[in-house]
Design a protein around this nucleic acid. Structure first.
Length: 576
DNA sequence: GCCGTTTTCGGCCCGACTGTTTTCAGTCG
């Protein structure tokens, strides 16, 4: 039982209890516990087995600790099972529908026994919903419409999918009448790997004018709501966009509030209450007197905190660090000196060595590594030894003729099921840099998978473990691995862990990165590009690294060429 | 159900918008 699954049980419990009408604070306690569990480094299963005191964890008290123990022991939670016998679990599918919350779902169920989307659709079409007390024709129409929207399916967009729309909206809004400033806030500003919607904050002398202008955006399909200071539209691709417009004096407070995360903001508001202050999106107030709110710096300063970068605002220790002036100096794109995971048309890439090298130069890199797949993978068109040898000759020629960019002779070597490497010894000897990677057998037992990776980590030829957990966002779960063991072994052998920047991978994730760093692990942020265009993906890896609290010193491809070369040598002398 | 240098009881962030209310509940962020 993974932490994620335990967290899901508490989410389900919270949702069903809320529909049943349970005390909202109790419901929230379960949700907070769920979020806390998702942020944990260590598997709860392991902690329970070791008899550790779970109530030491934030948001976990004695009652929830007992429930976690029950879940780990039996795989189920009897309280939830009993609840399901009173309320059909299928009602949960109705919660994401815009405009439907727990109260109305309960009313629909009590009045018409609606317990599925299909039943809801049928009732709406037959105009039965508008006849229920508390519902009307507009609500019925709204439900019908919401049933066809993407958001109600609970789907999130990859950051890079939202990006072009974010850019287009920013450019569009900059021309809005009376506008002063505009910024995309929310999870997009925090650089999360996926975003549920776009939150935009603007300041203007006449907010209403900006709202009107916003709803006329050409890619808007539908206006969900539009008031004096707020509006919501849905774009052609189903992406929902919320705009909030404030006066210039509230810019900082509004930006802070709409950047979130929710946990971060609530935490600060709780502290505000203790300090006798009130915080809302318009400013910070003592009694009824407004103290500040014009900038984010000022907002944090009024709490005695340093400015916290958006990527860290998750209530995972950043507030304490800001108070102690120990926030990390996060790595920036300018720190990156090169990209250590790249493909050309020799394996499954699209372009030539020359094209990749030229692109690297235009990106300002000092070095790159070409890392073709080793032979065993049919779908990745693994390179044969003679092909690799010719490629390496070509690289050596390049390095002889060019000073501006150094190319490492690399390979992405398949780690076989037993942990051995799928590559010819002769090729191995010519490599400057070897990535070890897993592309098959994702569902081995935790023990076998961990042993498989450990063997590769201890292999003196392997410098970097590429996309260590194998997850694909919204497609494939991370492999079951004992990550602490992997971090410890990586640190001990100076084996680098990759932060793979492919938008669907972003592997390791931010929680794993932050945890691994505590073990002394070093990282490579790499694009894994299969075309020159994809080389720009590296920035998504930087997002992830920043969310994982990484500094320049944690990242080997922020090193100058000479130091990187000696670092790679020290890796291949591991275990000797 | 969690939490605690004012507390082991009594709090729990705060506000906008909509529809169906006849003064506000529900939903959302």
């Amino acid at each position: 039982m993974q932490n994620k699954e335990i967290a899901e049980i508490f989410d389900t419990l919270a949702d069903l209890l809320e529909i049943e009408g349970e005390n909202p604070f109790k419901v929230r306690a379960y949700r907070q516990a769920s979020r806390a569990i998702r942020s944990l480094y260590r598997p709860l299963e392991e902690m329970v087995r070791a008899g550790e005191d779970l109530t030491k964890l934030p948001k976990i008290g004695s009652r929830i600790a007992q429930k976690i123990e029950e879940i780990v022991r039996t795989g189920k939670l009897s309280k939830l099972e009993k609840l399901k016998s009173r309320i059909p679990e299928s009602l949960l599918a109705l919660l994401p529908i815009q405009g439907l919350g727990p109260k109305r779902i309960k009313m629909l169920y009590d009045a018409l026994h609606i317990d599925t989307k299909e039943a809801l659709l049928k009732a709406a079409k037959e105009h039965k919903i508008s006849q229920i007390k508390g519902f009307g024709a507009k609500t019925e129409a709204q439900i019908l419409e919401a049933l066809t929207m993407r958001k109600q399916q609970g789907l999130r967009f990859l950051f890079c999918e939202a990006e072009p729309y974010a850019d287009a909206l920013t450019a569009y809004l900059q021309k809005a009448p009376t506008l002063r400033r505009v910024t995309i806030a929310g999870s997009y500003r925090r650089k999360k790997e996926t975003v549920g919607d776009l939150d935009i904050v603007a300041s203007a002398t006449d907010p209403r004018e900006v709202i009107d202008y916003f709803t006329k955006f050409e890619k808007s399909m539908h206006t969900v709501l539009a008031g004096d200071t707020r509006a919501t539209i849905v774009l052609e691709n189903g992406l929902q966009v919320d705009l909030r417009v404030v006066l210039e004096e509230s810019w900082g407070s509004a930006l802070h509030y709409f950047t979130g995360s929710k946990d971060h903001v609530i935490r600060l508001r709780q502290e505000a209450v203790e300090m006798g202050l009130k915080v809302n999106e318009y400013g910070i107030y003592r009694a009824d007197k407004r103290i500040t709110g014009e900038s984010e710096e000022a907002v944090y300063r009024s709490f005695g905190l340093d400015l916290i970068p958006p990527e860290l605002r998750e209530n995972r220790g950043e507030i304490e660090a800001a108070r102690n002036h120990t926030l990390p100096h996060l790595i920036t794109p300018n720190d990156i000196q090169g990209d250590l995971h790249l493909h050309t048309h020799i394996s499954d890439g699209e372009e030539s060595l020359e094209a990749v090298a030229r692109q690297a130069i235009s990106l300002g890199y000092r070095y790159i590594a070409i890392t073709e797949h080793s032979r065993s993978l049919p779908y990745t068109k693994g390179a044969k030894s003679d092909q690799l040898n010719r490629l390496f000759d070509e690289i050596e020629t390049w390095n002889r003729d060019h000073d501006e960019l150094y190319i490492f002779k690399g390979a992405e070597i398949e780690i076989l099921q037993d942990g051995s490497l799928d590559i010819d010894e002769a090729v191995l000897d010519r490599l400057d840099l070897a990535l070890g990677a897993i592309h098959t057998h994702f569902s081995l037992s935790k023990k076998s998978q961990t042993d498989r990776l450990l063997k590769a980590i201890h292999n003196p030829h392997i410098n970097i473990i590429a996309h260590p957990t194998g997850r694909l966002i919204q497609e494939r779960n991370a492999m079951e691995i004992d990550l602490e063991t992997i971090y410890r072994a990586s640190a001990q052998t100076n084996t680098i862990l990759e932060i793979n920047a492919q938008p669907k991978r972003l592997d390791l994730n931010e929680i794993q990165i932050k945890h691994a760093k505590q073990f002394g692990v070093k990282f490579s942020i790499a694009s894994d590009a299969h075309s020159t265009a994809e080389m720009r993906y590296l920035k998504y890896g930087i997002h992830q690294a920043r969310r994982g609290w990484l500094e320049k010193e944690d990242v080997i491809n922020a090193l100058p060429l000479k130091e990187l070369k000696s670092t790679l040598k020290s890796v291949s002398s591991k275990g000797r």
